[in-house]
Design a protein around this nucleic acid. Structure first.
Lengths: 140, 140
DNA sequence: ATAAGTGCAAAACATTTGCAGGCTT
DNA sequence: AAGCCTGCAAATGTTTTGCACTTAT
C-alpha cells in the first residue's frame, strides 16, 4: 500500500518541479487517505469549508498531476463523474450496485492468484483494476 | 459467452415488452458482436450509413435498455465517453494505456482462480470487471 | 388502436482551457 | 524575481430529457 506522508508528498512534488500549494496538498491528502473513491464533486464538498474558493478546475488539474505521478488511477465512471483510486497494492473494489459505495478488499491469496493469471496471459501489466459488483448489506 | 442471434434477441426484447425496431436491433447487434468496446460515438459512426438519421439519443436510450436486460455493462470512462462491454463470461480486458484499444482475454485457469478469490472475499457477486493495463505492440 | 420508439432540439451535467492576478520557490 | 498555480468564466464535450411524429405490435 502506498503510504505517503505530508513531507514525502512535498518532496515528491518538488522533485518534478511541481509546487506544493495548500490546495494541492489538501486535495492529494484527501484522495490518498480516503477509503472510498471520491468523485471530483465529493472532494470539493470535503474541502470547501477549509478552502471556500477552491474551484473544481483546480481539482481536475491536480488530478492530472497525480495521474502523471502515478499516485492515483481512475476507477470507473458512474452517475456523477469519474471516481479515483489511490494506487495501492493489488486489491479488489467491492462496488454496491445499488448505492455505488466502493470498499477495498484484499485476501492473502490474491497476489498469488493474480500473478498466476498474468503469467498465463503473458503481458507486462502497468496496472490493473479489479471490480466486483454486489449488493451491500444496507441495500438488501 | 453470451451468443445471441437475431431471433433470440427479438424474443428477449418482446418478453419484456420492448419493441424490436430496426435501429434498436442494429445497435444491439453492433455492440454484442464487436470485439472492442465501442463508445456511443463509435457505434454511431458504424451505423450512420445504414441509418442516416440515427441519433445519439436513440443509442443512449438503447444502451439503457440493454443494461436493464443485463446484456451489457459499462467498462470504463476514458477520453471520449463510456465504453460498453457485452456481458460475456469471465474475461480480462487488456487495455493499452497509449492508444486505448481493448482486447478480451481468457485463460483456462481464470474461472478457477476467480472462484477461489470470490470464496475468500465472501460475497455473492453480480458481476465483475477485470482490467489489465499494458502497452500494446503497436505502441511500443 | 395502442403503446412504445425515434430523432430533433434544448437542457443538464462533466471536463477542459485561457487568462489575470496571486503564491511558492 | 520568475514561473508556476489558482479560480473565475467560457468553451467543449457527454448524457439526459421533452415532445411531436412515426412505427411495431
Amino acid at each position: 500500500v502506498i503510504q505517503i506522508n505530508r513531507n514525502e508528498l512535498i518532496a515528491k512534488l518538488r522533485e518534478t518541479g511541481i509546487k506544493a500549494t495548500p490546495q494541492r496538498l489538501a486535495i492529494c491528502e484527501e484522495i490518498l487517505s480516503r477509503k472510498d473513491h471520491p468523485t471530483v464533486e465529493l472532494i470539493h464538498l470535503s474541502l470547501e469549508k477549509k478552502f471556500p474558493t477552491l474551484s473544481r478546475a483546480t481539482i481536475y488539474k491536480t488530478l492530472q498531476v497525480l495521474k502523471k505521478l502515478a499516485l492515483i488511477q481512475e476507477v470507473e465512471s458512474t452517475e456523477g463523474g469519474i471516481r479515483f483510486d489511490p494506487k495501492k497494492d493489488l486489491h479488489v473494489n467491492l462496488i454496491c450496485v445499488k448505492c455505488g459505495t466502493i470498499q477495498d478488499v484484499t485476501t492473502d491469496s490474491l497476489p498469488q492468484l493474480w500473478s498466476t493469471l498474468i503469467t498465463e496471459i503473458g503481458v507486462k501489466p502497468q496496472g490493473q483494476l479489479l471490480n466486483v459488483y454486489y449488493t451491500c448489506k444496507k441495500c438488501k
